[in-house]
Deep mutational scan, measured.
Amino acid sequence: MSGIALSRLAQERKAWRKDHPFGFVAVPTKNPDGTMNLMNWECAIPGKKGTPWEGGLFKLRMLFKDDYPSSPPKCKFEPPLFHPNVYPSGTVCLSILEEDKDWRPAITIKQILLGIQELLNEPNIQDPAQAEAYTIYCQNRVEYEKRVRAQAKKFAPS
């Protein structure tokens, strides 16, 4: 494992614990031996107030490669969400998460999670990743928002 990646992720964890947006979660997972795995984080993004996503808490896994922060983490909703920019596998399609697009090593975990929260309610229809959600979003916004509200209710924190 890269010392650069681990040191950056340790800084990220410290900064997150000191200050993070209300309702968001970002925690490194534990290895079988109980030690912390900084390369694999369990996160959760709350649906934004005043949107059909409100009330939901959407679980996301963030996986970092050894060359982080040169390369972005892979962000994957578990379980996958109904959304035009979420692949059926759950992987998020967002330009700041793509090395050859808008990724920059200075982007923080907090910025990534806030960017994904923004994307939930403002899909990028130029870059669809899920045919069904994309089609319904474009053709029947009322039905799309109904499905999103049902999903938010399903993923409401207990």
Score class of each variant (00 low, 15 high):
residue 2 S to T: 10
residue 5 A to G: 12
residue 7 S to C: 09
residue 12 E to Q: 09
residue 16 W to K: 07
residue 16 W to D: 02
residue 16 W to I: 03
residue 17 R to S: 07
residue 18 K to Y: 04
residue 18 K to R: 14
residue 19 D to G: 05
residue 21 P to S: 08
residue 22 F to L: 04
residue 24 F to S: 00
residue 28 P to L: 07
residue 29 T to A: 04
residue 29 T to I: 09
residue 31 N to Y: 12
residue 31 N to S: 13
residue 32 P to L: 15
residue 33 D to H: 02
residue 33 D to V: 03
residue 34 G to I: 06
residue 34 G to D: 09
residue 35 T to A: 06
residue 36 M to T: 01
residue 37 N to R: 13
residue 39 M to K: 06
residue 42 E to G: 10
residue 43 C to R: 01
residue 46 P to L: 06
residue 49 K to N: 14
residue 51 T to R: 00
residue 52 P to L: 08
residue 53 W to G: 00
residue 53 W to R: 04
residue 53 W to C: 03
residue 53 W to K: 02
residue 54 E to K: 03
residue 55 G to N: 08
residue 55 G to S: 09
residue 56 G to S: 02
residue 57 L to F: 07
residue 57 L to M: 07
residue 58 F to S: 02
residue 59 K to I: 09
residue 60 L to P: 02
residue 60 L to I: 13
residue 62 M to I: 08
residue 62 M to R: 00
residue 62 M to V: 11
residue 63 L to P: 00
residue 64 F to L: 11
residue 66 D to G: 10
residue 67 D to W: 06
residue 68 Y to D: 00
residue 68 Y to F: 08
residue 69 P to R: 03
residue 70 S to P: 05
residue 71 S to T: 07
residue 73 P to L: 03
residue 73 P to Q: 03
residue 74 K to H: 15
residue 74 K to P: 03
residue 74 K to E: 11
residue 75 C to W: 03
residue 75 C to Q: 02
residue 75 C to G: 07
residue 75 C to S: 10
residue 76 K to D: 15
residue 76 K to P: 02
residue 76 K to R: 14
residue 77 F to L: 05
residue 79 P to Y: 15
residue 80 P to A: 14
residue 82 F to K: 01
residue 82 F to H: 07
residue 82 F to L: 02
residue 84 P to L: 13
residue 85 N to S: 12
residue 86 V to M: 11
residue 86 V to A: 07
residue 87 Y to H: 04
residue 88 P to H: 14
residue 89 S to L: 07
residue 90 G to E: 01
residue 90 G to W: 02
residue 91 T to S: 15
residue 93 C to S: 00
residue 93 C to R: 03
residue 95 S to F: 02
residue 96 I to L: 12
residue 96 I to S: 14
residue 97 L to S: 07
residue 98 E to G: 15
residue 99 E to D: 15
residue 99 E to Q: 14
residue 103 W to H: 06
residue 103 W to C: 01
residue 104 R to G: 04
residue 105 P to V: 07
residue 106 A to V: 11
residue 106 A to I: 07
residue 107 I to T: 10
residue 107 I to V: 14
residue 108 T to S: 15
residue 109 I to T: 06
residue 109 I to K: 00
residue 110 K to T: 04
residue 110 K to R: 11
residue 110 K to N: 08
residue 110 K to H: 08
residue 111 Q to V: 14
residue 111 Q to H: 10
residue 112 I to A: 08
residue 113 L to I: 12
residue 113 L to P: 01
residue 114 L to H: 11
residue 114 L to G: 12
residue 116 I to V: 11
residue 116 I to L: 15
residue 116 I to T: 11
residue 116 I to K: 00
residue 117 Q to R: 09
residue 117 Q to D: 05
residue 118 E to G: 10
residue 118 E to L: 10
residue 118 E to V: 12
residue 118 E to S: 05
residue 119 L to R: 02
residue 119 L to P: 03
residue 120 L to H: 01
residue 120 L to N: 02
residue 121 N to C: 09
residue 121 N to A: 06
residue 121 N to L: 04
residue 121 N to R: 09
residue 122 E to K: 06
residue 123 P to F: 03
residue 123 P to G: 01
residue 123 P to L: 02
residue 123 P to T: 01
residue 124 N to H: 07
residue 124 N to R: 04
residue 124 N to D: 01
residue 124 N to L: 00
residue 125 I to A: 06
residue 125 I to S: 09
residue 125 I to N: 08
residue 125 I to R: 02
residue 126 Q to T: 14
residue 126 Q to R: 13
residue 126 Q to F: 08
residue 127 D to N: 02
residue 127 D to F: 05
residue 127 D to V: 02
residue 127 D to G: 06
residue 127 D to A: 03
residue 129 A to V: 02
residue 130 Q to L: 09
residue 131 A to S: 14
residue 131 A to T: 14
residue 131 A to P: 11
residue 132 E to D: 13
residue 134 Y to R: 02
residue 135 T to A: 10
residue 136 I to Q: 11
residue 136 I to T: 08
residue 136 I to F: 11
residue 138 C to R: 11
residue 139 Q to K: 10
residue 139 Q to R: 12
residue 140 N to S: 06
residue 141 R to S: 06
residue 142 V to A: 09
residue 144 Y to F: 04
residue 144 Y to C: 01
residue 145 E to K: 05
residue 146 K to E: 12
residue 148 V to F: 00
residue 148 V to G: 02
residue 149 R to Y: 07
residue 150 A to V: 10
residue 152 A to T: 06
residue 153 K to R: 13
residue 154 K to A: 11
residue 154 K to E: 11
residue 155 F to L: 08
residue 157 P to L: 06
residue 158 S to L: 11
